[in-house]
Design a protein around this nucleic acid. Structure first.
Lengths: 303, 303
DNA sequence: TTCAATGCATCAACTCTCTTGATCCATGCA
DNA sequence: TGCATGGATCAAGAGAGTTGATGCATTGAA
């Protein structure tokens, strides 16, 4: 079965053997009668066997052709089945990669609706902080934070990413009321090297707020910082919408209404080439319904 | 399984899945690594599924690929088997078309040797007077009389065709001895419209011998005329070598040693495209050994 | 008998798929 | 650190495969 062997000719032969007509077979395959004739002859030449007897207005399988035809049909049936089955079962699982923050604070809440709408689709949710590479990881789609400009990938805007300081009410109580942004500096900043802090203090009118840049690296995930904040270990800078529950439960407070952005937002992302897949379409449609700003342009004037 | 589906890509995928290497698969198939890469991507695009995870120095099947690979292998195994089995069994039968004259007077005598040399080959001998068309009849090769110039066919000279009057000794006795060609005209000429008579009489010095051209058409087969001659119904004009047995048995006599030709000779003939088939090669070799003049040029000077 | 319809073969021209070779990049190993 | 391995990417090119026109033989209907 080396590259020499004309597989396409074999496929054509199979169709011709079924129809016993070059023309009909051509129609089935979307070929002209000429092409069919050519392919059959090509196959006959490589096999060294005549497969059809050309009688005036009809063709007929030779003994050789008769022996070959059913087995070739079986072979192609198997291939067809293999392919469609593979596609079927692959379609049955949707693998989503998301940051743990988004997964736990947004997806967890909304995925139920998607699953109700798509009962046959098993969802596999993988969380990772890294930006996954679709060619190296088995994932159908991903939720990423960034600018939406990833080459080779299709991206849809999901929601803006903004942030504001948050801390546990208990910790806040230790310094009385928090009136002024600079008050926060009396407390421990959980990750002062996070550029978000610089942005926020600048926006609040304190571009020179003293932040200890030298300290530990980012904890890596907003969720971890949030947990630390809830535990009263310090002040975190978070996306407030993700923690409304915790605010309601009294685990966190948002002392200032000022929120800032750094230009990175949440995006749905998947490989260009797979944009027409049913399951991807389904998830895209779900997000479109669930998110008012889906596919909006975060960079136009209307903030 | 329409023409859209890249069958070749599937074949490439099968090889890659076995080797787990684009390069190795390429070597097996006689392709460059680039081509393999292209084909795999093509297949992935049409399926809408990633089949391999590209890790730095190795690749790995995805779930989808893992499901697909074994079934595709099975499918190709089936096709491979179908093809080789067909070829095998087709190679096991050699169908020869010959004129009944040649079949009964030459082949019948010599075919035994061929079958001893090729015990696995079943020989099917079909006799017919018509010049068969290989595209309309199931035949591997044919023995024909003619000039050896059939388009699309390969032909090998077998033996000259020449002829001389022959008759039963009993019939000859009815007019005493036969000394002179014209003596034959005292007897019934079995098929006087046969152009061979005209040629022979002319060669014997009697271009004006009165032959009843108007009479019945040729009996069609030399064998039939020979039978008539043996039965004493008249004089036939035959290829003497074919009837040496009958001469020996006293059924026929050849009154004159003069033999003539009409430019047509015996040829082995088969489709160009099948010249490399094992069974055709075998039969050709057999004739080469059995016939001293095999593949000689009957038209050169050396008669 | 003649005429129209059907179906395959043939031919030349072209298209576009597929292949090649060069180059690049990342990783693993010495 | 430097080399070998293995895959991706790119531009260029070849050639397999298609197409459409045409021809031929047969069948069936008028």
């Amino acid at each position: 079965m080396s590259k020499q062997f004309p597989l396409n000719a074999l496929r054509v032969f199979e169709a011709v053997a079924r129809h016993l007509s070059f023309t009909k077979a051509g129609e089935e395959l979307g070929l002209t009668q000429t092409a069919v004739s050519y392919q059959v002859k090509l196959l006959e030449d490589t096999l060294g066997e005549v497969l059809f007897l050309r009688q005036p207005r009809r063709i007929q399988l030779t003994d050789a052709g008769q022996r070959l035809a059913p087995k070739v049909s079986d072979g192609f049936d198997l291939l067809r089945a293999a392919v469609s089955e593979m596609q079927g079962s692959a379609d049955a699982t949707l693998t989503i990669h998301a940051t743990s923050t988004f997964a736990s604070h947004w997806l967890a809440r909304h995925l139920g609706i998607f699953q109700l709408d798509n009962p046959t689709l098993a969802v596999r949710l993988e969380t990772s902080q890294e930006v996954i590479d679709f060619s190296r990881t088995e994932a159908d789609l991903a939720i990423r934070v960034g600018k939406g400009d990833w080459p080779g990938l299709r991206s849809h805007f999901l929601m803006r990413n903004h942030f504001t300081p948050m801390l546990s009410p208990k910790l806040a109580a230790t310094i009385g009321t928090i009136k002024e942004p600079l008050d926060l500096l009396k407390l421990k900043i959980i990750d002062p090297s996070d550029p978000w802090w610089k942005i926020w203090f600048t926006a609040s009118g304190h571009p020179d707020a003293p932040l200890e840049y030298q300290s530990r690296s980012r904890l890596g995930a907003q969720a971890v910082e949030a947990a630390a904040a809830m535990a009263g270990h310090g002040v975190a800078i978070l996306r407030p919408e993700f923690y409304q529950d915790d605010v309601a439960m009294g685990r966190l407070v948002q002392p200032f209404s000022l929120t800032c952005e750094d230009g990175s937002h949440y995006w749905l992302v998947y490989p260009q080439s797979r944009r027409h897949t049913a399951k991807i379409r389904a998830f895209r449609d779900f997000l479109k319904k669930a998110l008012p700003d889906f596919d909006a342009n975060p960079f136009d004037g209307t903030q």
